[in-house]
Design a protein around this nucleic acid. Sequence first.
DNA 1: GCTAAGATTTCGGTGTGCCGAAAACTGGTC
DNA 2: GACCAGTTTTCGGCACACCGAAATCTTAGC
Lengths: 233, 233
Amino acid sequence: MKTQSVVEDYVKVIYSHTEWQPEPITPSVLAARLGLAASSVTEMVKKLAAQGLATHVKYGAVTLTAQGTELALRMLRRHRLIETWLVEQYAYRWDEVHDEAEVLEHALSDRLLDAIDEQLGFPSRDPHGDPIPARDGTITRPVGVLLRDASEGSTGRVVRISDRDPLLLRHLEAEGITLDTDLTVIGRAPFGGGFLVRLGAHAGDATSAATGATPADLDLGDQALESIWIAAA
Amino acid sequence: MKTQSVVEDYVKVIYSHTEWQPEPITPSVLAARLGLAASSVTEMVKKLAAQGLATHVKYGAVTLTAQGTELALRMLRRHRLIETWLVEQYAYRWDEVHDEAEVLEHALSDRLLDAIDEQLGFPSRDPHGDPIPARDGTITRPVGVLLRDASEGSTGRVVRISDRDPLLLRHLEAEGITLDTDLTVIGRAPFGGGFLVRLGAHAGDATSAATGATPADLDLGDQALESIWIAAA
DNA sequence: GCTAAGATTTCGGTGTGCCGAAAACTGGTC
DNA sequence: GACCAGTTTTCGGCACACCGAAATCTTAGC
Ligand SMILES: [Mn+2]
Ligand SMILES: [Mn+2]
Ligand SMILES: [Mn+2]
Ligand SMILES: [Mn+2]
């Protein structure tokens, strides 16, 4: 029986939930991510379990089986390759690729996908820094910490930005933050002030927000802090 | 209400039936082309009519309204642009593109389609010689006659080959017949013999099958005669 | 332990597109 | 004008994926 695109989406969301954080997904979160009613999700999860793609603790979390993980990685590979391809070949901006990829990932044949992979030179990450699983299902997560958790004064390079919100992506690009941007964490301004970062690597001359902040420093909002991952430059 | 891909397929088949031949399609033929039961088609045609895409003479033919024709041309543009793109960009052979296009035509966004159109230099025909409707719905049918109806001794250039049967396409390519191939109609060999053509333009030295056939002449089967269109070279 | 808020599941129901069988219709033949 | 073969339509039913409302379960707070 052919895997329908609905199943592909469920499995992809279930997998993605644990990609940057360890807690398995619950039915209500799954429903929210898919834009469906909780009752619909319960039913579908039952079918996933019946197909051997997921296991489900009743009244609890949903996890993927090895088979489900395999399918999820295939879909992630498709999604991310397509996003990369749209940017490289068709001048899409990084905030414009997600929706198109969301549709195309279910439609391209393996053959076409392989041809695209080759055309792109077998890329290892997508426009948002997410790793592209290899054809054999291998995936290498970039090391990095969430900007929110970065220590004050540290310097790092942006290795991943969540592509969930296109508006945030456009904003960050306008501010000069994209993949591989070096930045220095100034820290949180006192008395409930914003979280400041400085573009470029300034290891050594970085100072705390209390003393060394300059007007040129960027004040990032909470959403950005939860969306940007950095690694030692 | 978004047009579903099922509707798009119905409308495309209805239109295509009158593209090279004037009789409107009947429910049974429509069912055969779509691989569905006649009863399913009756129901769906009713819905097409309700949506203003088709008109249906009860117990009779199905025809498209202006609106239905517009949708059909949009879909044909998609299908044929995609076929062309697969051949030009991804080294598909002309007998391999149809199935992939059949899926992708429902999935690509208008934006991506336009980008592809531009990348290809706004092609006017697909790998099988079918005209690609312009964005405004304009379509220019190539002039040409079915090879079956070509007069003996005439010379012509292949302007269109039906892409319905991949095996025929491969066969013809192996025999040296593709788009723009010049050929001379020798004619039907006597006593129920095959239909002979000679590669290249040999206006003047063409002779009837009875007298001038040579071993090198190609003997085309009935299916080919019904699938190849030629025009004066 | 009890309770209640919140999450999850169950249940009845919907829309879409499909099917086979049976009924209704058509067009040609005599 | 009656008949018949083939076509088309009607009809009851199914699979899929979804929904809201009601019932059930979990768990955190007391
Ligand atoms: Mn994405
Ligand atoms: Mn991405
Ligand atoms: Mn085709
Ligand atoms: Mn074609």
